[in-house]
Simulated scan of single mutants.
Amino acid sequence: MAIVNVSDAEFQNTVREGLVLVDFWAPWCGPCKIIAPILEELSGSIGDAVTIAKVNVDDNPESAGRYGIMSIPTLKLFKDGVDVATYVGVRPLAELEAAVKAHL
């Protein structure tokens, strides 16, 4: 499954079913640029099991505020609408894969 860009208006609908990994990011964020290809690789390896969604915090401050995003990149894992895990900063592919698989 491809990585999807999500707005404040779409956020709740996007995370309400299944497993969704949300990347809170911004275009000016250096570490966000580092994690982007890791998320692409994750999508390629287990994208059928998880939806990967990107939320630009500059364009969508409501979602970032609702979940207390204080630094980016922050990744949040949702299972059927419930926030089950948070990862702040760049994480290696193996860690993210293990985290997703733990919630399948």
Score class of each variant (00 low, 15 high):
Met1Ile: 11
Ala2Phe: 03
Ala2Asn: 10
Val4Leu: 13
Asn5His: 11
Val6Gln: 02
Val6Phe: 01
Ser7Asn: 00
Asp8Tyr: 09
Glu10Val: 07
Phe11Gly: 04
Phe11Ile: 06
Gln12Lys: 15
Thr14Cys: 03
Arg16His: 10
Arg16Tyr: 01
Glu17Phe: 06
Asp23Trp: 08
Phe24Leu: 08
Phe24Val: 08
Trp25Ser: 12
Ala26Ser: 10
Ala26His: 07
Pro27Gly: 11
Pro27Val: 11
Pro27Ser: 14
Trp28Met: 01
Trp28Asn: 01
Cys29Glu: 00
Cys32Val: 04
Cys32Asp: 02
Ile34Gln: 15
Ile34Trp: 10
Ala36Lys: 08
Pro37Glu: 05
Pro37Cys: 03
Pro37Arg: 06
Ile38Asp: 03
Glu40Ala: 09
Glu40Thr: 10
Glu41Ile: 10
Leu42Cys: 11
Ser43Cys: 10
Ser43Tyr: 03
Ile46Asn: 11
Gly47Met: 00
Gly47Phe: 00
Asp48Lys: 13
Val50Met: 06
Val50Pro: 12
Thr51Leu: 14
Thr51Met: 11
Thr51Phe: 02
Thr51Trp: 03
Ile52Cys: 04
Ala53Asp: 02
Val55Ile: 13
Asn56Leu: 07
Asn56Asp: 15
Val57Gly: 05
Asp59Tyr: 01
Asp59Leu: 12
Asp59Gly: 07
Asp59Lys: 10
Asn60Met: 05
Asn60Gly: 04
Pro61Gln: 14
Glu62Cys: 01
Ser63Asp: 10
Ser63Met: 06
Tyr67Asn: 01
Gly68Arg: 06
Ile69Ser: 07
Ile69Leu: 10
Ile69Arg: 09
Ile69Asp: 09
Ser71Phe: 05
Ile72Pro: 00
Pro73Tyr: 07
Pro73Thr: 07
Thr74Leu: 05
Leu75His: 00
Leu75Tyr: 00
Leu75Glu: 00
Leu77Asn: 00
Lys79Gln: 12
Lys79Ile: 08
Asp80Trp: 01
Asp80Met: 01
Val82Cys: 04
Asp83Pro: 01
Asp83Asn: 15
Asp83Ile: 09
Val84Tyr: 05
Ala85Arg: 09
Gly89His: 06
Val90Cys: 02
Arg91Asp: 02
Pro92Phe: 03
Leu93Pro: 04
Leu93Glu: 10
Leu93Tyr: 12
Ala94Asp: 14
Ala94Leu: 07
Ala94Tyr: 07
Leu96Tyr: 11
Glu97Ala: 13
Ala98Phe: 06
Ala99Gln: 02
Ala99Glu: 03
Ala99Thr: 02
Ala99Phe: 02
Val100Ser: 06
Lys101Glu: 13
Lys101Ala: 12
Ala102His: 08
Leu104Ile: 12
Leu104Met: 13
